[in-house]
């Protein structure tokens, strides 16, 4: 049970963004995806989420091939993307953000608000972050609670794999710790997590493996227990240990 990318290459004009990259993500594990600016992290993330169609390579989820370059296909296959900006509508409550575009309605389109509220509250209450009501506008929530709202939307519809883009950037230390606990909780519940980040300390804290990209190539994949900070920095900067 895994997401598998094999031999992924992608070129933008003269720039080779990804070259023959392999990547796997098992359910229940957290894999860090790190690299310098321009290393290809964003492109690989977009390939995973279906936002970008690779020039070559294959994409499979739980053994089933997924049509690459199709966000809806990736989502239906169980892969959800969580953007760095969280893509929340600040004035709407969490419950509406969670169900935006997939509202539970009567056959005439009227909201089944009670069901939506209970479902969203159930997901939110499952996180270790300080409890909050899903009827509060997300603009009034703390950084950690906003992250929970966005993650609730990602996992609320049966997703098995989540890609998190810089989930701890621009957060206070407290909110960062909340997010770390949330991500760990996701993995414990059996969801596979890709964490794209520049925050090596957090990556080392919660990831079981880390994939390092350098100038579009996979510089290495390391189990966190078998690597050091020094080795990771060398892979990021020089492309080799």
């Amino acid at each position: 049970m895994a997401v598998e990318l094999r031999g992924i290459s992608k070129r933008y004009g003269q720039v080779l963004a990804l070259e023959n990259v392999d990547f796997t993500l098992e359910r229940g594990e957290i894999v860090g995806l790190v690299g310098d600016n321009g290393a290809g992290k964003s492109t690989l993330m977009k390939v995973l989420s279906g936002a970008v169609r690779p020039d070559s390579g294959s994409f499979a989820v739980d053994g089933q091939p997924v049509n690459p370059g199709n966000p809806i296909g990736a989502r239906e296959a169980g892969v959800e993307m969580l953007y760095q900006d969280l893509s929340l509508v600040d004035d709407l409550p969490t419950v509406m953000n969670v169900f935006l575009g997939r509202e539970l309605t009567t056959r005439f389109g009227f909201l089944r608000f009670g069901e939506m509220r209970r479902h969203a509250q159930g997901i939110v209450d499952g996180f270790s972050v300080r409890g909050f009501s899903v009827t509060q506008p997300v603009g009034q929530l703390s950084g950690g609670q906003r992250q929970v709202s966005a993650i609730a939307r990602s996992i609320g519809f049966g997703s098995r794999y989540v890609i998190l883009d810089e989930p701890t950037s621009a957060l206070s230390p407290n909110a960062r710790q909340e997010v770390v606990e949330i991500i760990s909780g996701l993995a414990r519940s059996g969801i596979g997590v890709v964490m794209v980040s520049h925050d090596l300390a957090t990556v080392r804290q919660i990831c079981s493996r880390v994939a390092v990209l350098h100038l579009g190539r996979l510089a290495g994949v390391r189990a966190m227990t078998d690597t050091t900070q020094q080795e990771l920095v060398s892979l990021i900067v020089d492309g080799h240990a």
Binding site: R117, R118, G126, S189
Partner: peptide, 25 residues
């Protein structure tokens, strides 16, 4: 963590104190 299978009775945080439970729906 109970992400994909929310419990039936979730939502204690915003339960109304002065109104019947269905009001929250």
């Amino acid at each position: 963590m109970r992400a994909n299978n929310p419990p039936e009775t979730a939502g204690a945080v915003d339960t109304h104190r002065f109104f019947p439970a269905w009001v929250a729906d």
